[in-house]
Measured scan of single mutants.
Amino acid sequence: MVQRGSKVRILRPESYWFQDVGTVASVDQSGIKYPVIVRFEKVNYSGINTNNFAEDELVEVEA
């Protein structure tokens, strides 16, 4: 279970941040499909630095 402030590695192959490390900004408990919002240092092609992920697409590298 990841929690706010954890450092996580992204396992979603189609993601711009695949294999990159980001910080968990928040975790939604309402039961949505992609409840974990992760914030990154670098921006993607659209200038965005956050994205939603499912918990099984993340691996915690640092608490």
Results as ranks from 00 to 15, higher is better:
49 N>G: 05
56 D>Q: 07
23 T>Q: 05
27 V>F: 11
33 K>S: 08
49 N>T: 06
49 N>V: 05
35 P>V: 12
11 L>S: 03
11 L>F: 04
19 Q>C: 14
30 S>W: 06
18 F>T: 00
58 L>P: 01
51 N>S: 15
61 V>F: 06
9 R>F: 04
22 G>D: 03
41 E>I: 09
7 K>Y: 08
6 S>R: 08
41 E>T: 11
34 Y>F: 11
1 M>D: 07
6 S>F: 05
36 V>N: 00
51 N>C: 15
16 Y>K: 02
12 R>V: 07
61 V>Y: 06
15 S>E: 03
19 Q>G: 14
10 I>C: 09
56 D>G: 06
24 V>D: 01
42 K>H: 10
57 E>T: 03
31 G>T: 06
10 I>D: 01
8 V>N: 01
29 Q>Y: 14
61 V>G: 03
58 L>V: 11
53 F>E: 01
41 E>D: 12
37 I>W: 15
25 A>S: 10
15 S>R: 02
44 N>D: 14
34 Y>S: 04
13 P>D: 03
36 V>Q: 00
37 I>T: 15
6 S>D: 08
12 R>H: 02
5 G>L: 04
38 V>A: 00
18 F>K: 00
20 D>N: 09
27 V>E: 02
56 D>E: 11
11 L>P: 02
34 Y>N: 06
38 V>G: 00
49 N>F: 09
32 I>S: 13
60 E>H: 09
17 W>T: 01
47 G>T: 01
5 G>M: 04
5 G>Q: 03
8 V>F: 00
60 E>P: 13
47 G>I: 03
46 S>P: 03
48 I>W: 08
50 T>R: 05
45 Y>D: 15
54 A>S: 10
63 A>F: 12
46 S>G: 09
19 Q>I: 07
49 N>K: 05
9 R>S: 03
37 I>D: 02
47 G>L: 02
5 G>F: 03
35 P>N: 13
45 Y>A: 15
4 R>K: 13
52 N>C: 14
58 L>G: 01
15 S>A: 04
13 P>W: 10
1 M>C: 14
2 V>Q: 04
21 V>K: 02
6 S>I: 08
16 Y>L: 02
5 G>T: 03
58 L>Q: 00
37 I>L: 15
37 I>A: 13
9 R>T: 04
19 Q>K: 09
11 L>Q: 05
1 M>P: 11
45 Y>C: 15
49 N>P: 03
17 W>A: 00
23 T>L: 07
14 E>P: 01
22 G>S: 02
23 T>D: 03
50 T>M: 11
19 Q>V: 06
15 S>N: 02
42 K>M: 07
25 A>Y: 10
2 V>N: 02
57 E>V: 02
23 T>V: 13
42 K>S: 12
44 N>A: 06
11 L>R: 04
16 Y>T: 02
45 Y>Q: 15
13 P>M: 12
38 V>M: 00
48 I>Y: 11
16 Y>N: 00
19 Q>S: 07
21 V>Q: 03
3 Q>C: 12
62 E>T: 12
37 I>E: 14
62 E>I: 10
46 S>M: 15
21 V>A: 02
59 V>T: 08
15 S>H: 04
56 D>I: 08
26 S>M: 12
49 N>Q: 07
35 P>Y: 11
7 K>V: 10
49 N>E: 03
58 L>D: 02
18 F>W: 06
50 T>A: 07
